[in-house]
């Protein structure tokens, strides 16, 4: 796992460095501290989602509902603020809502055994539905000034607050995965859940906490998004779902589970953010941006799987030209 991971992360780092060099050559305003900080600001929201998604994909699961959880969180925060008047209580309730959504996913997946893609396909719509019913489909904007701090504020001069939150959460997740018994079990379950069971690991418990963790990350992401746009709306996290999965996979997490690092995911997220920012600065149309970002993902994954491709070709030759 370690050897393979290192080599993938190296390829990705090279790709990332190349990208930065090209962008700075093409656009003089790219390689400035202000711009780079704004890149980190743009990537934090879906980066935090990707942290949760990474942990889930390591267990060989998937979560399509993270965006809906983020959206629901924004509604819960805004409504419970309106009802209680306490911002702290509102935010805590929002995060609790995210954790409960994650637990709901987790129970269906871990205890009942429904495949994650089906469960979260359902809850993606279900959680979004709850948010729409609660908000009657409206955007809620009567939020206090202090609420805007995490999404629009700066610390230490001009470092965006959400960048710092992302950094702290990334380090925390990385430590959870690499240092704690739970983290070890997450990898074990993703690698070979049968062997994990045969080793006395309570796989259902591990998975339950994995989905709760992702729920909490989604909630934090939702909190930041609604703070940035000064609005709560049911569909606020929706655009980030596929992007966070793509960034995780780009970062080297095996979609079949068992391997992946937070470091890789952070680079994966950065690649997407740099591409989006750089292409914007150069003046590439948003349509072509999508095309290029998709292409980047495919190219990196092909490079990553080059050994498999080589083997396939070798077998093909052996069978047909011998």
């Amino acid at each position: 796992m370690i050897g393979i991971k290192r080599s993938h992360e190296l390829i990705l780092l090279l790709f990332f460095s190349g990208l930065i060099i090209i962008m700075s050559l093409l656009s003089p305003s790219f390689l400035t501290i202000d711009n780079l900080l704004s890149v980190t600001q743009q990537m934090s929201e879906f980066g935090i989602l990707a942290l949760g998604v990474t942990v889930i994909i390591i267990t060989s699961g998937i979560d399509l509902s993270v965006g809906s959880i983020a959206g629901l969180t924004t509604i819960v925060i805004a409504m419970s603020y309106g009802w209680s008047g306490s911002l702290v209580a509102a935010i805590l309730l929002g995060i609790l809502a995210g954790a409960l959504c994650g637990a709901f996913n987790g129970v269906l997946i871990a205890k009942i055994g429904v495949p994650p893609i089906l469960v979260t396909l359902g809850t993606m719509t279900f959680f979004n539905g709850i948010a729409l019913v609660l908000s009657k489909g409206n955007a809620i904007s009567d939020l206090p000034e202090e609420f805007y701090f995490v999404g629009q504020g700066y610390l230490f001069g001009n470092v965006p607050v959400q960048t710092l939150i992302f950094l702290v959460l990334a380090i925390l997740t990385s430590l959870l995965l690499s240092k704690t018994p739970w983290g070890r079990r997450v990898y074990a379950v993703g690698n070979n859940s049968v062997a994990a069971v045969f080793s006395g690991v309570q796989v259902d418990k591990v998975l339950l906490y994995v989905y709760i963790f992702a729920g909490i990350m989604s909630a934090i992401s939702g909190w930041i998004i609604s703070s940035r746009v000064s609005t709560a709306r049911a569909d606020l996290g929706a655009v980030y779902v596929m992007q966070s999965i793509a960034a995780t996979v780009l970062g080297g997490t095996n979609i079949a589970g068992g391997s992946g690092t937070i470091f890789g995911t952070v680079i994966g997220v950065s690649v997407f953010a740099v591409l989006a920012n750089g292409l914007n600065l150069i003046g590439v149309s948003p349509f072509a941006q999508n095309l290029l970002m998709g292409l980047a993902l495919i190219v990196v994954l092909l490079i990553n799987n080059v050994s498999i491709i080589k083997r396939k070709i070798a077998i093909f030759i052996k069978l047909n030209f011998n």
Partner: peptide
Amino acid sequence: LEGLIGKSSVCQNITLSIL
């Protein structure tokens, strides 16, 4: 299939049950 976490190290396999 049942005994080992193949892509994990010798050390981590040995300690999996007593973490």
